[in-house]
Design a protein around this nucleic acid. Structure first.
Lengths: 204, 204
DNA sequence: GCTTATATGAACGATGCGTTCAGATGTGTA
DNA sequence: TACACATCTGAACGCATCGTTCATATAAGC
């Protein structure tokens, strides 16, 4: 017995993943997060329930709740696994760099996995743990954005009074606004101008 | 029988509101929305379920679903009933006017009724009807905001390239961002500066 | 070998959504 | 006057989901 086959595709009938002793089985985490991703692609964001994930991963719900104590926690994990850490490639001007950024996130948020982010924001409104995770994430991304703005400022692109972090938050808010109001088809370039033009040297 | 008493406080035991014939009973709508508001104040946003509202209003769930076909619809109704239409009082400068606006909405969003708005945003992420209602509301408020910006522009406060509607959306996004990330304690004045300074004439 | 932590699968309770039904009410019209 | 009609309550139902608990099996590590 105990055929330790890695049957994640499900062609075998009965048992496939068991305890590997008194330590966490990495295959389990992988199977669960993978199952979540598959569900997202197959059934979309609506089908992503704890039960569905457990069933698809052939995992016990007890296992899910052991490692991700709430639905929100799982959502966050799924999102963090799916999102590639966007590096803000310098396009020469801040406007161009931010336009590229907007294009990137809008495209990602439209994917099956990316839609999870909207769910996380929704869940954060009623789940303190998710709210905390979201806030951590926001701060982390804010730092990355502020660095880009900082570099632009060092190049002399920005007017005197510009504060990198405040401007970064304005940039981010514009993106999140488009997400939660379902307008991810907004033109990234135009949006970058609408948000930033006032702060650029040369516009009077 | 048929004592048509308006016993909304619940001191009487048995029956209190019945059909008034083949037309909608306005007392029912009032009782339901009122009950929702009471629940918000008593139990907070978590306790606001259709069942709880029905029970508290002594209404049948069938009646609720007749007039508000989903939970989201009821949320929207509750919100629209609670929010006073904010008129943007002109404080002389756009910064001051927007600071006052931020102060107003942040204060309101922190009230029991105001918290419903965050719920609506959350619900909109998975309920198309709510999303549509939210989008209507956003556009309506956008127009009001853009008018204020327009007046400011007419006074010559803004730089050449400023577009009233785009700027209005940036202003709004900054506020919504603070709401969904639980930072309604942000300083309204400071925020107004962070969003607008770049667009004001005189900042180089 | 014994302890310990993990994994599954199934059951359970609680909650909430949205639907359906029966029975009572009163308006408006034929 | 009589009847059709739309409304209201209250209760029940089906369904999905959350999160918990239990019994049982597994194997690492001391």
């Amino acid at each position: 017995m105990a055929d330790q086959v890695e049957d994640l595709t499900g062609s075998c009938a009965k048992p496939q993943r068991r305890s590997i002793g008194a330590k966490r089985n990495p295959a389990t985490e992988e199977a669960i997060l993978g199952a979540a991703q598959e569900i997202l692609r197959d059934k979309g964001v609506k089908g992503l329930s704890m039960e569905a994930v457990a069933k698809r991963a052939r995992a016990g719900k007890a296992t899910l709740y052991k490692w991700w104590p709430s639905r929100g926690a799982l959502l966050v994990a799924v999102y963090e696994r799916a999102k590639g850490e966007h590096v803000h490639e310098d396009k020469g001007t801040l406007i161009a760099t931010m336009a590229a950024f907007y294009r990137y996130v809008f495209d990602f948020w439209r994917t099956a996995e990316g839609q999870v982010f909207a769910l996380i924001i929704a869940e954060a409104q009623s789940d303190a743990d998710v709210a905390e995770a979201l806030e951590r994430y926001r701060k982390e991304r804010l730092v990355a954005l502020a660095e880009v703005v900082d570099r632009s400022q060092a190049r002399g692109e920005l007017i005197e009074g510009a504060q990198a972090e405040a401007l970064a938050e304005t940039i981010m808010a514009a993106a999140w606004m488009r997400l939660i109001t379902g307008r991810l088809d907004s033109d990234p370039e135009r949006l970058a101008h609408e948000v930033l033009d006032g702060w650029m040297v040369g516009n009077r």
